[in-house]
Design a protein around this nucleic acid. Structure first.
Lengths: 359, 359
DNA sequence: CTCGATCTTGCATACGTATGCAAAGATTGC
DNA sequence: GCAATCTTTGCATACGTATGCAAGATCGAG
């Protein structure tokens, strides 16, 4: 641990501004506190003195007094899945618009997340956003007692102590099953994400239900753990089966592009002629023409908006009763899977598949 | 601005722990301050009381007293370029290992960055990492006066007030020129990043120098602004020229994959038979077999390591004289460009191009 | 046992800001 | 002009923690 002292000019304090402006420190504080009572004349004097001295209010001191740091902890175990950087950027933008700031915890894929939680709690954050990671019931309870709003992004929990923003994963899985059956596929594979992820579980459940409704009950399942290397390995296993599935549903697009690479470059398959691949979340590369993944969308903007809305509402009201927002997605049709004869609609030059039940 | 009050149980204070343990608040503080003097017996009493009461030290209060927040501001205007999420994850990991935390400012691509700077300075951050954005001389001076270390990541500046971590962009550009000439290319294009970016400038300078040394002086230059849409537009312009360049050097791989998509899917070109494409930074998708971009590497780990080392050194010593680290990259050869007959070396199953001068 | 050196402890204070409250000043209506 | 009411201001204090310093306790050597 370092023990050095930084030789530097101390920051200008509100007391120095007060002396310079010929008013009290209290007047300076009120000048910089939105909604506080200060006369226009005094305000002008304070602002002039502050500018001349290069004063910047100390957010740390203010946090201590107001019990409000205006810091939101965002926990993302990894950024490898290209969906999460987009989410992070959008969250950062929206939180900044509300004058909140992101304390980011990331890069602990292979480590226990308890130290992360300990650290963020020390900073007395105003709220917590958990993406791609979960919260134990003990820690959840602590947040509840402390009155700190928690929003699970793209996760759900049975514990019901945290709010959540998700998409209709189960319906998405079902819709994909229907789409593949309508395209004439007779055998199916599924590459899952993490076993303990609610999104993964729901997507598979929906897929099973959809296949079952079409008279299919067998799925070859392999685990991709939401990362590229494991997805590649899972793809190799599925594609090496004596009876290769005609279609593979990959639990997210980050893995789907890896599966497509393996299929084309290691097994020499043509997509979608030899094999159909469908994914979930419609992240960056899935949209690129080199992949063109047919995928259920997870609309980042509405999800980020809902997340920030919940947080702001709970912080403002002091009421942290869990709120759950479910954002609908759509099955966007590209080039990675064989098409059904019906059910494809086009809107703004983009093709979507609509379930028979909702057409 | 919100005005509500959060109804919640206040956090446990060190004074409450002290009372519970039958010692002074000072003893509690010393128990949680690394290196402070505290007897094993008293420490045990305090830790037991702290655990029983669920005490978590208040990092905000400690920051106020110690003038050290242990917060590092990381400024990344956008995360669209897939290089930066990887960088961010690695920085987060390394900073956490030093018990520092990332206050992230992102998502302001189209906005002035001054408000960002104002906000981060209010939090009395211990250091600043600027990636994909610059610092005005006025703000740079303010950091110097305040003794706050600033490290430019993947940027340089003539102002010399900030430290920097870069790669050999100029040499990389030169090496790519040599590689393309050796592969028999006779006409060249360049899709640039941002006009005001030092990395972009140096890559183009190096490319010009390398081509000139090989007897070529003409380059068709278009601007891609480091984003996909503008890179696509630039590619369309270059590929629509009466005399299409045989090779295009794209200023970063985020844009290079877009250029390849346009070439293949809009112009029906075969890579590298009809057109060679080379890039810079070797980011995620560039490595995927669907793209296989031949590219100069920007090794994230050593760069992140150097960045954090500089910061830790400067924070510990109080000495913020600018330090500049230049991390060498290599030209990694994949499938996006025609190969020269000589100069290719293989190491661990990966091919590299070595300049004649360094072979 | 004594003394000097070293460790431990609690008291008092500071950090920089926001805010409750009483007093003073300003404004409005009769 | 005066009373009522509203606005503004500065004083005193608090937030939760770390630390300088003096006093007390402990340890080791002579």
């Amino acid at each position: 641990m370092d023990g050095g002292i930084i030789t530097k000019k101390p920051s200008v304090t509100s007391s120095q501004v007060a002396e310079h402006a010929g008013v009290s420190q209290s007047a300076v504080s009120r000048t910089f506190t939105p909604g506080a009572s200060i006369s226009p004349k005094t305000r002008a004097k304070v602002l002039a003195a502050a500018k001349e001295l290069g004063y910047r209010p100390n957010a740390i001191a203010r946090s201590l007094i107001t019990s409000r740091s205006r810091i939101i902890a965002v926990v993302m175990a990894y950024l490898e899945n290209l969906f999460y950087p987009d989410v992070l950027e959008e969250l950062g933008r929206r939180l900044a618009a509300e004058n909140y700031h992101v304390l980011l915890f990331t890069g602990f894929m292979d480590r226990d997340s308890d130290p992360v939680f300990d650290q963020l709690m020390q900073y007395r954050v105003d709220g917590i956003i958990l993406a791609s990671t979960s919260l134990s019931s003990q820690l959840s309870e602590e947040c509840t007692v402390a009155g700190i709003p928690v929003v699970l992004f793209n996760r759900t929990t049975e514990k019901a102590a945290a709010s959540s923003v998700t998409t209709r994963n189960r319906e998405g899985g079902r819709l994909l099953a229907e789409f593949l059956i309508a395209g004439g596929h007779k055998s199916f594979g599924y590459i899952s994400g993490l076993e303990n992820s609610s999104t993964n579980r729901d997507r598979l459940i929906g897929f099973r239900e959809g296949l079952k409704a079409g008279g299919f009950s067998k799925i070859e399942v392999r685990t991709g753990n939401y990362n590229r290397a494991d997805a590649e390995a899972a793809a190799r296993e599925l594609l090496s089966l004596p009876k290769r599935p005609q279609a593979i549903f990959v639990a997210n697009d980050h893995m789907a592009v890896a599966v497509m690479d393996v299929a084309r470059y290691e097994f020499g398959l043509t997509i979608p002629k030899d094999l159909s691949i469908v994914g979930y979340d419609d992240v960056g590369p899935a949209r690129w023409p080199s992949y063109g993944i047919t995928s259920v969308t997870q609309p980042i903007m509405p999800m980020a908006e809902a997340t920030v809305d919940i947080l702001m509402d709970q912080i403002a009201s002091g009421e942290i009763e869990p709120q759950h927002r479910v954002i609908p997605g759509e099955l966007i049709v590209r080039t990675s899977a064989r098409l059904p004869k019906t059910g494809i609609v086009e809107r703004d030059g983009v093709k979507f598949y609509k379930s028979a039940a909702t057409r």
